[in-house]
Each structure stands twice: as structure tokens, then as C-alpha cells.
Design a protein around this nucleic acid. Structure first.
Lengths: 173, 173
DNA sequence: GCGAGATGTCTTGACGTCGAGATAAAGCCA
DNA sequence: TGGCTTTATCTCGACGTCAAGACATCTCGC
């Protein structure tokens, strides 16, 4: 932590993690808590972001898990079809879960199941017109909500942040 | 995204989110996807971090949810006691979940339940000696694992990242 | 001191996810 | 072609979490 940013955060803003680090420092002053300053903030931001997503989506009548599936289909491009196997790799859930999700989305009329013409074991999940409208609207709402959360950062800061996060994420990809 | 970092990430490193943004850009070129560059990375990093935590903790025989509870007690300082209500506010779970968790931790001998001497409705959850040893070991393993994930960043970059994340998180606190 | 509302904890039922296993079809090699 | 392994999807039971409600106790104004 540079002297500048140290002063800056102390005077201007302080977050939950500052308290967390302070408490650990009292109890385990022997440890270097620098990783906590980064990863604890990432975990907490992810949690807050989940809630923000939920809010943005409820206005459009869909839930987060629904968006995850619909968005994968939407990103695939016309004709908006993916196999359940591909979907579960995109959304990081298990096959049992995906079966359940596709069932419920089919019940809501947002996707439909068709036999895979090239593989009789397989199925294709296709976005319906309603599904496409729902995911497009929800995505726009999500972008708007996320843009609000970024409002305090300059464009340069936002890009620098994205770049630093990429450095952390790239080794996993 | 500055021209410099654009070149840099294209040549040197590319992550899952670059693919995601590219796909969205193909389908929805009309939208400003800058928020995705930040928040999608945060969500994905949080997921990868969860897995890293799980690995670091299994070596010490505890699970992530156990660490969350034990760490809250550990941070409270001697005598390492908190009420269930305080614990559920620290760990962001519901009361039913906390009852279940304290039950299981008690069964493992990592915490014990005592009546609150100042409130006969209340209980105090106290870390046992085994619980303290477990959480201290697990925390050290977690810090080591997290430090590894940060290895590619310079100290200055790491501090800048922490500062930018604080800017995002502070409004929530 | 008494009663109403607030607070703290635990109980219960429903639900979504996981993980393992079942089934069916495809791919491959002799 | 026949058999063996791999791949794709779905089924089923177990488990953890949540949300709502039950119950006991505390707090505070009258």
C-alpha cells in the first residue's frame, strides 16, 4: 500500500475489508495480510454484485440462474442453439442441475428442446423468441446497473482495473 | 481499454472474459461492454478463489464454511466468543443455517456452546483449543495459496489493485 | 411492576444443487 | 460386422441453505 493511497483511503473512504484486515492484524500481526486486501475484496464484491444482478433481473422477470443459461444461448448467435453438455460447461453446473434448469425454462417457454439431428443421443436447447427478448432486456439492465457501480472510477482507472484483473484471471484460463 | 494494454493483453495474455466480451460484441455490438470487463472478471476470480480456498483448507481438514465461522471467532480475539446472531451477521447466512453449522462444529469439537451470562435467551459460541489451532493453520495455508495467485503482480500493482477494489467496495459498506 | 413490542435462537418444510449411477447411442478397431 | 470404450443426457437420493414461524426472554414506556 503506497503512502498516498494509504492516506487517501483512511481519510476519504474505508471499506469492510479495512476492518477485517485490522482485526486480523491485531490477532496475527506476524502474518503478511496483503493477499487479503485483494482477495477478500474480490469475494465481497462478487457477493454484492450477485445481489445487484438479482435486483436488475427481477425487474425483467427472470432469475440469475435463468440469465446464465439464456445468455449462453444468446451469445452463441443465431440460431441460438447449444447442447445441454455445452451449456453445463459454460455455466459450471452439473448435468443433473442443467436438466432441471432446462426443464423449468422450457416450462416458462423461454427455451425449447429439440433432438440433435446429428446425434441421436443428444438434444439441442434453443432460445425461443420470448427467451431472446427476456435475455436481451435483462442484459441491458445488468449493464446499466453495473455501469452505476463503476461511476466513481474514471475511464482510465476502470481500464487499469480490468487489466490488473485480467492478469490474475489469465492463469486460470 | 487503452491501446497499450490492448496490445499487451492480446499478445501476452488473454483470459476467459476476453472471449466472453468478444462473443457479446458480435451479438450486441450496440452496447458498451466495459462493465463486463470488470465485473465478469470479479465473479470468475471469486469462483476460482473459492476452489483455491477449498484446496488449501482440505489439507488442514476443514471446509470453507467451517473456516468462515472459526475465523470470525478467531478475529474476535480472546476469549474467542461470539453470539450466533453476531456470527450470522459476520458470515451472511441465515439463523437456521448457523444453528446447523454450530451443531456440526460442536460435534467436531472445534467450538462449544455456552449460555450467555447476561441474556438467558442467548448463547455464546466459543472456539476450543482444537478450533483455534485448526483455524490458525488453515489461515496460514490460505494466505500462502493466495500469495501464489498474486505472484505475477508487482507490489505496486498489487497495491493499486487493492485500492481500486476498495473504491468499488466502499459504497457498499 | 406490567404489558407490548423487540430481540435472540431454534425448528420445520421446501427447494436447488451435487454426485453417482443408469441408459442409450456413437466412435473405433480388429 | 461385432464388441468395447467413450460420450451425452437424464434419474435419483442426500445434503445444505433459506424463509417463515415458534418460543422464550429482554427492554422500555406508562
Amino acid at each position: 500500500m503506497s503512502r498516498f493511497s494509504m492516506i487517501w483511503h483512511t481519510v476519504v473512504m474505508r471499506d469492510e475489508v479495512d476492518d477485517l484486515v485490522e482485526a486480523w492484524g491485531r490477532e496475527r500481526g506476524d502474518l503478511d495480510l496483503a493477499p487479503v486486501e485483494v482477495f477478500s475484496r474480490i469475494s465481497r464484491l462478487a457477493r454484492h454484485l450477485d445481489l445487484a444482478r438479482r435486483d436488475a433481473f427481477t425487474a425483467h422477470g427472470i432469475e440469475s440462474w435463468e440469465f446464465d443459461v439464456l445468455a449462453a444461448l444468446r451469445r452463441a448467435g443465431s440460431p441460438y442453439e447449444l447442447s445441454p453438455g455445452r451449456l453445463l460447461r459454460e455455466t459450471l453446473v452439473t448435468s443433473g442441475t442443467m436438466t432441471n434448469r432446462v426443464d423449468r425454462l422450457t416450462g416458462r417457454g423461454l427455451v425449447e428442446r429439440l433432438p440433435d439431428p446429428h446425434d441421436r443421443r443428444g438434444v439441442l436447447v434453443r432460445l425461443t423468441a420470448e427467451g431472446k427478448a427476456a435475455v436481451d432486456g435483462a442484459f441491458e439492465a445488468l449493464l446499466a446497473a453495473e455501469a452505476d457501480l463503476l461511476a466513481d472510477l474514471s475511464t482510465a482507472e476502470r481500464d487499469r482495473l480490468a487489466g490488473l484483473l485480467r492478469s490474475l484471471l489469465a492463469p486460470f484460463s
